[in-house]
Amino acid sequence: MKIGIEGQRLFRKNKHGMDFVTLELIHGLQQIDRRNEYVIFIQPDSDICIEEIANFKIQAFSSLAYPAWEQWALPRIAAKERVDILHCTSNTAPIWSSIPQILTLHDVIFLEKPQTTGSSKNWYQRFGNQYRKAIVPTVAQRCQMIITVSNYEREQILKTLPLPQGKLKVVYNGVSRRFKQIQNKRELINIKEKYRLPKKFILFLGNTDLKKNLKGVLLAYSIFVENSETVIQLVIVDLKQKYLSEVLKELNLPGLQEHIVLPGYIPNRDLPAVYNLSDLFLYPSLRESFGLPVLEAMACGVPVIASNTSSMPEVAGDAALLVDPKDALLLANDIGAMLSHNNLRQRMIRKGFRQAERFSWQNTAEQVLQIYENTSKSRVTRMAA
Rank of each mutant, 00 (worst) to 15 (best):
M1A: 13
K2D: 10
I3R: 02
E6H: 09
R9W: 14
R9T: 11
R9P: 01
M18P: 02
D19I: 08
V21N: 02
V21T: 07
G28P: 05
D33W: 06
R35Y: 12
I40Y: 06
I40K: 09
D45C: 07
D47S: 10
D47W: 11
C49P: 03
E52G: 04
A54L: 11
K57V: 06
Q59D: 08
Q59K: 15
S62L: 07
S62Y: 14
S63M: 09
S63W: 05
Y66D: 03
E70S: 06
W72G: 01
A73W: 11
P75W: 07
A78T: 08
R82D: 12
V83R: 03
I85M: 05
C88T: 14
S90W: 00
N91E: 06
I95V: 15
I95R: 13
P100I: 08
T104A: 12
D107C: 09
D107N: 11
T116F: 09
T117G: 11
T117A: 15
N122D: 14
R126C: 07
R126W: 10
Q141V: 10
Q141D: 10
C143F: 00
C143I: 03
I146F: 11
S150C: 12
N151F: 12
R154H: 13
K159T: 11
L168G: 07
K169R: 14
S176R: 04
R177E: 15
F179V: 02
K180Y: 01
Q181W: 04
L188T: 06
I191S: 03
I191K: 07
R196W: 04
K199Q: 13
K200Y: 10
F204A: 00
K211H: 15
K212G: 03
K215F: 02
K215Y: 02
G216T: 03
G216P: 02
L219A: 08
S222N: 14
S222R: 00
S228G: 08
E229D: 14
E229N: 14
L234R: 02
D238M: 01
L239Q: 01
Q241C: 01
Q241W: 03
Y243M: 00
Y243P: 00
L244D: 04
S245D: 15
S245V: 13
K249Q: 13
E250N: 10
L256T: 02
Q257L: 15
E258R: 13
I260D: 04
I260T: 10
V261G: 01
N268A: 07
N268L: 07
N268H: 14
R269S: 14
R269D: 13
Y275F: 15
L286C: 00
R287E: 14
E288A: 10
G291K: 01
G291Y: 04
P293D: 13
P293N: 01
P293F: 04
A297I: 08
M298C: 05
C300Q: 00
G301D: 07
P303Y: 01
S310Q: 03
S311D: 06
S311P: 04
P313Y: 09
E314R: 02
V323D: 03
D324T: 11
P325G: 08
K326M: 12
K326Q: 13
L330W: 06
A332Q: 03
N333A: 12
N333C: 11
D334N: 13
M338W: 06
M338D: 06
L339P: 05
N342V: 08
N343T: 11
R345W: 07
R354K: 13
A356H: 05
A356T: 01
R358V: 07
F359V: 11
S360E: 09
W361E: 09
Q362G: 10
L369C: 10
R379E: 12
M383E: 14
A385H: 12
A385E: 13
